[in-house]
């Protein structure tokens, strides 16, 4: 699998709710701060992501978009 959680780091406020609900532990707080000073979320293991979109469902700041890899492409 090679699904993608696209992170709009300027909207991320580092609240950690996405990390809390992720069943596969794919996300982590990164080491790069955005212009507001929040250390934003990033994907640590793209191969584990099942594109369940729980992270995007709970993200209060619309910072996440989820894409699923299409089979046979």
């Amino acid at each position: 699998m090679n699904n993608l959680v696209k992170i709009n780091s300027e909207r991320c406020k580092s609240c950690g709710l996405c990390i809390h609900v992720c069943p596969k532990d794919v996300l982590t707080i990164g080491e790069i701060a955005n212009s507001k000073g929040y250390y934003t979320v990033e994907m640590k293991d793209q191969t584990m992501c099942i594109a369940c979109a729980f992270c995007a469902l709970i993200c209060p700041d619309l910072a996440l978009e989820v894409y699923r890899e299409e089979k046979g492409k």
């Binding site: 699904n3 993608l4 594109a51 979109a53 995007a56 469902l57 619309l62 996440l64 978009e65 989820v66 894409y67 699923r68 890899e69 299409e70």
Partner: peptide, 11 residues
């Protein structure tokens, strides 16, 4: 890639 979750136009 197929979008599963994207930002709504309602906001």
């Amino acid at each position: 890639m197929k979008p599963i979750f994207t930002k709504t136009k309602g906001l």
